[in-house]
Simulated assay, not measured.
Amino acid sequence: MTQAWLELTRADGREVAAPSEAQLTAALAEVYGGKVAGPDGGPASAVLRFGYDDGLMYEMEVAGGGAVRFAEWSDRDRELALADPRSMKALPQAAALQLWRLMARRQVAQIRGQPWLDE
């Protein structure tokens, strides 16, 4: 049987398996608060991923300033993109949390239906 997993990579690079809502909220607060810089000195970002042991992986990165990027992959190794990445700009923190809640519940169809920008 296929096992689903959920993983958060915080702005400081720490990974949290099966993060709670409080941990998701705290990670976004770090990103939106601007107190943590990214590894390259630029805006910080945090990434929430979910997938299945035998295949598909989805990831949503939220960066300082509210830039959001959603990508779909054939597997955890990102061997094959299943669709072009989607993005949003200047999303409020509460809206980013709503998207992460959809990710945590594996609601891919609802995520795809969001008002993504044309790349």
Rank of each mutant, 00 (worst) to 15 (best):
V31R: 02
A95L: 02
D40T: 09
W73K: 08
Y58T: 14
R69Y: 05
A96D: 02
E30M: 06
A26S: 13
A81I: 07
G65S: 06
E72R: 14
G66V: 01
M103G: 07
Q23H: 08
F50K: 03
R76A: 14
L102D: 08
M103V: 10
R78A: 12
L82S: 07
D77H: 15
T25M: 00
G65C: 03
V62P: 01
D77R: 15
Q107V: 05
M57E: 10
R106L: 11
L28C: 05
G42Q: 14
A94K: 11
Q23C: 07
A94Q: 14
K89C: 02
A27Q: 10
A63D: 02
M88V: 04
P39N: 07
D77Y: 15
A46M: 12
D54G: 13
A94V: 09
A67C: 02
V31M: 01
V47D: 03
P85M: 04
S45E: 12
R106I: 03
W73I: 09
Q93F: 02
K35S: 11
G41Y: 10
A46W: 02
A27P: 07
A90C: 01
L24C: 13
L102F: 07
A67H: 09
A29D: 12
A37C: 06
R106A: 13
G41D: 08
D84R: 13
D40Y: 08
Y58D: 11
V62S: 10
M88P: 01
L24E: 04
L102K: 09
L82W: 06
Q93G: 07
G33F: 04
A37P: 01
F50D: 12
P43N: 06
Y32L: 04
E61S: 14
L97Y: 03
L28M: 06
G38C: 08
W100R: 05
L91G: 00
A83Q: 12
P43S: 09
A67Q: 09
V31C: 03
V68S: 04
Q98Y: 08
G34K: 05
R49T: 09
A83R: 13
R76E: 13
R86A: 10
R69F: 05
A94E: 14
T25E: 06
A63H: 01
G66K: 00
G34Q: 06
A29H: 08
S74N: 10
A46I: 08
Y58N: 14
R49L: 08
F70I: 01
W73N: 11
R86C: 06
A63G: 13
D75W: 07
P39A: 15
K89R: 15
Q93Y: 04
G65F: 01
L102N: 03
L48F: 00
P43C: 01
G38R: 03
Y32G: 02
A71G: 08
A46T: 15
M60C: 11
V108E: 10
M88R: 15
G41N: 10
M88A: 14
A37S: 11
V31A: 00
R49P: 00
K89M: 07
A22R: 03
R86H: 13
E61L: 10
Y58Q: 14
A44D: 03
L56N: 06
R76M: 10
V31W: 00
V36I: 15
G33K: 07
M57R: 05
E59A: 12
L28I: 03
E30R: 05
D77V: 10
P43K: 07
K35Y: 00
P92D: 12
R105W: 12
S74Q: 14
R78E: 12
A29L: 04
G51D: 04
G41Q: 10
L99W: 03
D84A: 15
A37T: 11
T25S: 09
R69K: 13
E79D: 10
